[in-house]
């Protein structure tokens, strides 16, 4: 599979799509919405404990592709995914795979902060509860506290865990969502433009958090902001009209893009 000659997509993609210690591997992935092809033959590896960002103009399919990794596209009736995506060499689109444990392994943070209309505590505790991760109440308390600490929210909310999660500010809500995602100890976290609804200060906090979390998790972040991609990720993938145009080290993508379309986007000519 890793033989480059097998892969048609390489005719398109410039740069190094492969990773030495790959955790997630996508091979020749096509996504259709009805008759509309949203992702065209994308192949990419996502390494272990790597922060990779997907950039590209609006409607280029980066969010769609992100949602393939935890099969969130299953919830859309007309959406069909072809090709192969593996996590630790296990095809997640295999018929035998159950999406419930898969989504516990691959967490997701959405564009708009979407805490449940429940208390802060219950928001974080929800995942561990449904997956049966905690043995008892004390253990659950520890999980909640630890998750909130890692999400950098503990100091702000430790005295009001029972107040509603939706009462927090936008940035706090997004960190609460990150805490909720890491409470089930996932291996990969997918972030779909996590800062697009936030002000610069909240954004900075989230970016710091991504930096830190990058030490323990593989993080895939879709972003509209090239500066953000440059700040948080080691690798960057550029999508255009459903195709993966170029993948490479973030520094190189932003300083020496090889593909003319990437260059055009980076320099602000398209997008």
């Amino acid at each position: 599979m890793n033989n480059r000659n097998d892969l048609k997509s390489l005719e398109l993609t410039v740069g190094d799509v492969f990773s030495k210690n790959a955790r997630l591997k996508a091979r020749n992935v096509n996504v259709f919405y009805g008759n509309n092809k949203a992702i065209d033959n994308v192949t990419i590896d996502i390494g272990s404990k790597e922060v990779i960002s997907f950039i590209g103009p609006s409607g280029c399919g980066k969010s769609t592709f992100l949602r393939c990794f935890n099969r969130m596209n299953d919830t859309i009736d007309s959406c069909v995914v072809q090709g192969e995506i593996t996590i630790d060499d296990e095809n997640i689109y295999d018929k035998k795979i159950d999406v419930v444990p898969l989504r516990a392994r691959i967490g997701m943070v959405f564009q708009k902060p979407n805490p449940f209309p429940k208390s802060i505590y219950d928001n974080v505790a929800y995942g561990p509860r449904i997956h049966g991760l905690s043995e008892n109440k004390e253990h659950l308390d520890v999980i909640v506290e630890e998750s909130l600490k890692r999400a950098g929210l503990w100091q702000e909310v430790s005295d009001r865990l029972q107040s509603p999660g939706t009462g927090l500010s936008g940035g706090q809500q997004q960190r609460l969502c990150i805490a909720r995602a890491i409470a089930v100890s996932p291996e990969v976290i997918l972030m779909d433009e996590p800062c697009s609804a936030l002000d610069p200060i909240a954004t900075a906090k989230i970016e710091d958090l991504i930096h830190e979390l990058g030490n323990d998790y593989s993080i895939v972040i879709v972003t509209h902001s090239m500066q953000q991609a440059a700040r948080v990720s080691k690798r960057t993938a550029y999508f255009h009209l459903g195709k993966l145009i170029e993948v490479g080290k973030t520094k190189e993508i932003f300083t020496r893009p090889q593909h003319h379309q990437t260059e055009a986007y980076i320099s602000g000519k398209i997008g």
């Binding site: 969130m72 999406v99 967490g107 959405f110 979407n114 929800y126 995942g127 449904i130 995602a181």
Partner: peptide, 19 residues
């Protein structure tokens, strides 16, 4: 968004519906 959040964390269909 609430549905997405629940599915995203690995809730089954039944859990999303009832919770």
């Amino acid at each position: 968004s609430v549905r997405d959040a629940a599915y995203g964390i690995g809730a089954s269909k039944l859990q999303v519906i009832f919770h």
